[in-house]
Design a protein around this nucleic acid. Structure first.
Lengths: 266, 266
DNA sequence: TATTTATTGTATCGTTATGACAAAATAAAA
DNA sequence: TTTTATTTTGTCATAACGATACAATAAATA
């Protein structure tokens, strides 16, 4: 078998894993920028179809590992906050329930230069199960890379997310729902913000996740009461107003707080 | 289709075949009796091995359906509180990581008459991903039934649970951890207690789940404040003390509260 | 019948958490 | 020097909470 062919098969495995296999993982990779929460989406070649980055689990690999691998392949980031949030296995996930979409997929695969492009789409009639992971990243540190079957890999503001492949919109919604619950057990800014940030930035992040405004002074009071922030010098913004302090997380205090798992709510 | 292309497809199939996995579900069925929380376990035939009841997802069946099916097969109960809590897919779940246990399983399977090929399960070669569900039931309404591979099906007090097959002890622990979190989003007594119960019984249930004592009068105050209980006549216990009232859940108020998803904590 | 016992139902009290709002501080512009 | 916009800190009434006390009561006991 030629090297090229092996590469092609390997790419297919990674990308189409969720259709070919019974098990796959899908990543809801959330980044934060410009006071907005964004999600990383892949655009398929040739057609206007977007989907969550995903892949499947190699034989000697755990599910968590697979999710980390996909994340690294798409963003270049390692050692990232990544958490399983739900497994989707309804009968309706079967490809044959979405014939039009399957036809589109068929067109895409036919145009991709591979020697074995006449794939038997009987594969598509299998029931498949995918496990969702959400990741929180500082998107300015990422370098999004499309995979073999994608022509681009872009950050989308949550409000603008288009219709996605299969049930990926539902998966995204579930990820956000779970993230909001996690917020009560875990302060999350540490992985979404740059190392030093203003209290306003942290509040805007929480507001973006919760999709509702929070009261400024009460937010500050509660956040400081957690005793996981370190205050640094002020940041001179150049604006005609009082300059805000910069804060960063105290990693060890942060970790012990997470360890204790104390619930706090917003 | 050319011979070469057919070869390519076969190569792909073979390659993918290496990655074949099995999906299963495992149920942590919790019952409450005698002020104790109990879990339903199966004892395998011929050997002293216990495990959680579980099963495979049939071809045209969703994962949730499969869990309901297993639950009904084991307990006779339908329309039950049943919730997915986590999916276990670490590399270590592969049978080949537990050779002694696999040898035991092999002995068991050899003694069981196997007309049915499905029973081979591929336990010794495939990697397993299992999704855990927890169920809450009134155990006095159940009729535990062992399955084909089990010789008994019994309720075990949580404190007495023996070492279980594979990572089932971890799965049980995770189920309890998740249940305790759910407790803050959902009053759960409705499915674990008989229709009418005393406040003391409800408190004992919460204490059993949380594994810590709760303050009596404050528990009563909070629980009544939820406004989902109906008070009935007193229950004459025959003991030399004040007789307690009986309560039951107001189903519609209960449902609307769950709908609102209001958080309350103990 | 009167008293005792054990448990239940409810009230109280001090502390803390919370939401809404107000006031002081301050960097830069006018 | 004053104005402007935003941050930081403070206040205050209310609600929630943990701890404790006390009253109510069904049955046993004297």
């Amino acid at each position: 078998m030629t090297e090229k062919k092996i590469q092609g098969i390997h790419a297919l495995e990674n990308r189409l894993g969720e259709f070919l296999q019974e098990n796959s993982i899908d990543c809801v990779i959330l980044g934060y920028d410009q006071e907005e929460l964004k999600v990383l989406l892949l655009k398929w070649k040739f057609e206007d179809i977007w989907s969550l980055p995903g892949g499947y689990i190699h034989k000697m690999e755990g599910m968590d590992q697979a999710a980390h691998r996909v994340l690294e392949e798409r963003t270049g980031l390692t050692s990232i906050f990544l958490r399983q949030f739900y497994t989707f296995g309804s009968a309706g996930r079967n490809g044959e329930h979405r014939p039009e979409e399957m036809a589109t997929m068929r067109r895409i695969l036919e145009k991709i230069p591979m020697e074995n492009k006449e794939l038997d789409f009987g594969w598509f009639t299998k029931r498949f199960v995918t496990t969702g992971y959400f990741a929180l990243v500082d998107l300015r540190r990422t370098d999004p890379n499309p995979d073999f079957l994608s022509e681009s890999c872009e950050w989308w503001a949550l409000d603008d997310v288009p219709q996605l492949l299969a049930d990926h919109n539902e998966i995204l919604e579930k990820a956000l729902e779970q993230l909001r619950i996690h917020l009560n057990y875990l302060p999350i800014g540490i992985s979404l913000l740059p190392q030093k940030f203003t209290m306003r930035a942290l509040q805007k992040l929480y507001e973006a996740i919760l999709a509702r405004p929070l009261e400024r002074s009460n937010f500050q009071r509660k956040m400081l009461a957690l005793d996981i922030l370190v205050r640094h010098e002020k940041q001179m913004t150049g604006a005609a107003n009082k300059a805000p302090y910069l804060y960063s997380f105290d990693r060890s205090k942060y970790d012990t707080l997470v360890q204790k798992g104390i619930g706090f709510s917003f």
